[in-house]
Each structure stands twice: as C-alpha cells, then as structure tokens.
Amino acid sequence: MAARRQRTHELDAADRNAMPDRTFAFPRLRKEPLNDATHVRNAIARFDQVRDVTDDEREEAFRRIKRAAKRYGVDMTERHWQELGKPTATMKSSDKPRTPTKARRNQPRNAWSRDELYAEAKRRNIKGRSAMSKAELVNALEGR
C-alpha cells in the first residue's frame, strides 16, 4: 500500500510568488494569503500585526477576508476591521485555554477539552495544531 502524502498548508517561496496580488488580504505588501481556510483563519488572527498600511487598506483587506471566509466556510463574527486580531472585550483570564492540571493529565486524552488538547499541542510545538479537530489533536499527541 502506497503511503499518502499529507497536504500541508505551508506556501514555499515559489508558490507564494506565483500567486496573483488579488489573492492576498493586503495586495500592495503581498501579506496574508487567502488561498484556503487555514490561511483565512491566519489572516484573521494576524490582521492587527500587519504594519505600514493605511486605514483604507485595512478596510479593503477586511472586505477581502470576509469574502474569503465565506468562500471557504470560515466563521467570522467581526463586523468591523478594528475588531480583527484583538481579544474580545468580554474575554476573561479564566476563558483562556489552560494546560491540563496534574490530575487531568492522568485521565485519557479523549476526556480532555479541545482547549486543553490544543494547549498541550502548543506546548509540544505540534505543527498544524490550529486546524486540527479534537480527535486529530488526540492522535497527534499520542503520536499516531
């Protein structure tokens, strides 16, 4: 049986250079590609980290991200570009994902919450963790 190659969402320089400007949230700078759901989620999360752009460029980037989110089925609740990339005002420190406690670590991983699994995957630097489901996180943490 031939091994299937797992598709990654990483773009190498050749792929990125071959993409037209219109596929980027910020076309002038060619920042934040919007070519799949993973990159759209990344553009949403990193929106406020893009430097040297005007408010008009941010407004246009926001429209591009909204269109791409709809195209790729990414949930986007923000209504204005000023809301992107920032924690919500109602987020409390207790809402942040926590690493599992010692007692929790003795339980099977499928009993952990997705946030706990994600925090552990982040601690272990598992690549692709943000796009993984709970079951995929369990498998990745168990080395399957």
Rank of each mutant, 00 (worst) to 15 (best):
Y118N: 06
E60C: 00
A111K: 14
A61T: 04
W81Q: 06
N42E: 15
H9V: 14
L34Q: 02
A18S: 14
Q82R: 15
K96D: 08
H39G: 05
H80Y: 13
E136T: 01
G143C: 10
F47L: 05
V40Y: 03
K134W: 01
N110P: 03
H9W: 15
N42M: 15
R51I: 03
K127H: 13
E57L: 00
A140T: 02
D52A: 04
L11E: 04
M76W: 09
R22K: 01
I65L: 02
G128M: 09
K96T: 13
R129E: 10
P108R: 09
S94Y: 12
K127D: 13
N106P: 04
F26T: 11
F62E: 07
T99Y: 10
R51C: 03
P27L: 12
R71E: 04
K86C: 08
I126K: 00
D95M: 12
A119F: 06
T101F: 08
E116K: 09
A2S: 08
A43P: 08
M1P: 06
P27W: 08
N42T: 14
S94V: 15
T99P: 05
A121F: 10
V50R: 04
E10F: 12
A140G: 01
T8Y: 11
I44C: 07
A68P: 03
A68E: 02
S93P: 04
E10N: 10
E78M: 12
E136N: 00
R58S: 01
T77K: 11
T54S: 13
R41G: 00
M1K: 11
I65M: 03
M91F: 09
G143M: 06
E78A: 15
E10R: 15
A111Y: 07
N139H: 07
L34H: 00
A43Y: 01
A89S: 11
E32R: 10
L84V: 05
R124H: 05
H80G: 06
H39I: 00
R7Q: 15
R64L: 09
V53W: 02
L117T: 04
K92F: 08
A69F: 02
R46E: 15
E10W: 11
D36C: 15
S133W: 11
T88D: 10
A119I: 03
Q6E: 10
M76S: 07
Q82D: 12
V40R: 04
A3L: 11
E32C: 09
I65D: 03
F26V: 12
W81G: 03
L117Y: 01
D48I: 11
P97I: 13
P100R: 06
N139L: 05
A135Y: 00
R30L: 13
P100E: 11
V138A: 00
H9L: 14
Y118L: 15
A135P: 00
S93D: 13
